[in-house]
Nucleic acid binder design. Structure first.
Lengths: 213, 213, 213, 213
DNA sequence: GATGAATGAGGCTTCATTCAT
DNA sequence: AATGAATGAAGCCTCATTCAT
């Protein structure tokens, strides 16, 4: 290894690391601004200011406003999916009631810790913002990810004969509705109790509603 | 009452009636445009065009864009509230299960017939569009009206010992969640079945989840 | 004719006339600004200022900057084409040398009276500004119009046996080159003599160069 | 001269040579990008990319965008001037018709081999890009160089009594116009024949147009 | 000297609102 | 009261230039 290559092996990663830092800072700023000002109200200038960079820098990292929002959601969606998958794996051998409660608790906790993201998701579900040619990731694709995992969970419940097998489709809609409803209330009329404590009640309610007998 | 006043009582109402007509036409146009373009995407010019009037006319009837949206929601909210109240009255003497199902069916039917309004409501629930000092009617106040009636209904259920009295608060959140979730699915991924047919399933699910024993 | 229709027949044309006025004012302002600042350097704000309107007004009349430039050129091109056609018609029965000189003189005079337009034309001939999907009128389409008439004229010359019939294509290129060159010099290094006085010299030069014998 | 200085005379030139290499690479890249994207559309980043260097490097070699363009034109202008001067020298003793044809052919060949430069020249003739205080070399100064040699050539023609002596000024304008027109056509509507083959036609046309008798 | 990320002035465009007719 | 053209504040985005490494 000559000095040239050793310089490169240090210098390039440095630049790359700094670039990553900025990227993260921008995403974080965007999360907060989109979360508080809304999908339509967030201004690029505000995001830049909060990230501590110039507007132009935003465009060095993201193609345009839409791309920034998309990539923000994609990135946060990954974290969420990872957490839910982990929870699903962890519960694999437990009885269904426990799995359900664990899943619900994980979901609630995650959003409790990521309120701005929750806010963005809830708004993006209905916004007609995204242009037609949105590349790949429609903003609310994140909810689809949750949906998939809810379905996966409920299939386990059916297999374990803990849930009725008819109305299976509707039941995932129901569970999503319960979760969403509780989360939305938390967002707009925060209670003092940690939201994850609602998990047993939600799980129990759902279970009684959907159970086999 | 002299003849003069009797003339007035005929002539003025004519103007008033014409004004009312325009008002209605604008509200209807606004409903469709806000519904299809979204709360942020609806343009005053589009609304005017669809109503068949000039932009200026919108401002002769409504103070500004926000007022138009507010009054639109207020007006549609009244219809909805009336319908739900009627349903509540009609069911007064029936057993709770029947009342619940009737209420759910009424709600679903109403929105099935007023999809643009549904769309507006779902979006307005999370939009940060409205300025801080919105006079009186925050856009999503309409959901509050539904909420009140749901609570009223559930109180009857508790009184009739058909529902547990603990978790009463949470249960209205739950029922709202179920309804919202089913309606949202209908809006974004319409099924072929009339949505009101879901009422029995929703009611039954809720009842099992919340029933006393 | 009732009062309503008579009002309309006066009021509508009024608005229309006013609109036309503004349109013309904008086109004139655009001609001067594009002419003096160049195709790339002309700013919408400057055009608005010179037209005595707000920026927004530009967009009430033209879709965007490109459309404004296009329509400006189209409009000026019509005037030019009209003038040349008239000259061609007028000369129909004259001998070719006279026709040629008349045509050249008309062209030079026209541009002498419309220097900003000349400037725009000369620049637009080489600018790579126009986006791919330019609707119909590429900026330099105006030169094509001149070209067509030059060809028409030269065909007459050939028919009248005043010009050689070989090299006909090249000869229109040559005549355009002579004209363009003289006009460009006039634009960038104005002489004191009225430019149309050059017509005899140009026509004679061309005639000797292209004549049959 | 001691050994030290002899080392310097070898080592320094190395650095100088490397610097020269980069300089050339940048100019070549600039030529292609300015040529294809236009004077206004060429982006520093594109030039850097094509040259295989970083943007910053452009600024290590040229003061700013204008300077880069200027120096590009200056450098290409030298090549052109050299070629024309050589041609003028070579023809010195030939009869004027031959000199004229040789000159025209040389000019056409040169531009046939340097189309991007031709494109830049044609555009720069009319662009109002250059700031007022451009240091020394206005972009289109290159055409002035051609102009001077054309005048020189025509003076020989007059001296040799091959050209009329009146209208001498106008004749150089004419010859430039013919050349420019043919070159522009070649650029925007390329024919299949080598452009230099047009030389006899152009020369003959001009000669008939401008000859003494 | 090379690098390339950061900068921010500056241009284009949109659209809610106003106002003269 | 209706009309619709005019207004201009505000937002997005580009790109020449700078500068720390």
């Amino acid at each position: 290894m000559n000095s040239n290559s050793s310089i490169r092996s240090k210098i390039l990663p440095l630049r790359v690391r700094l670039r990553e830092e900025t990227n993260k800072a921008i995403l974080q700023a965007a999360e907060q601004v989109f979360g508080s000002q809304g999908l339509g109200g967030a201004r690029m200038e505000d995001i830049a200011a909060r990230a501590g960079v110039a507007v132009g820098t935003l465009y060095n990292h993201f193609h345009d406003r839409d791309a920034l929002l998309s990539e923000l959601i994609v990135s946060r969606r990954h974290e969420l999916a990872r957490r839910l998958d982990e929870e699903l794996r962890r519960g694999e051998s437990a009885d269904f009631a426990r799995q359900l409660e664990g899943f619900v608790a994980a979901l609630l906790s995650h959003f409790e810790e990521h309120r701005p993201f929750l806010s963005i998701l809830l708004e993006s579900e209905h916004s007609r913002t995204a242009p037609v040619g949105a590349r790949g990731a429609r903003p609310n694709a994140a909810l689809v990810e949750v949906y998939k995992r809810v379905q996966q969970l409920l299939e386990r419940g059916i297999a374990a004969r803990a849930l009725r097998h008819d109305d299976a489709d509707l039941h995932s809609v129901f569970l999503m509705g319960l979760l969403r409803s509780v989360l939305a209330r938390e967002l707009y009329a925060p209670t003092q109790v940690p939201i994850a404590e609602r998990a047993p009640q939600i799980a129990a309610f759902f279970l009684r509603g959907a159970e086999r007998r």
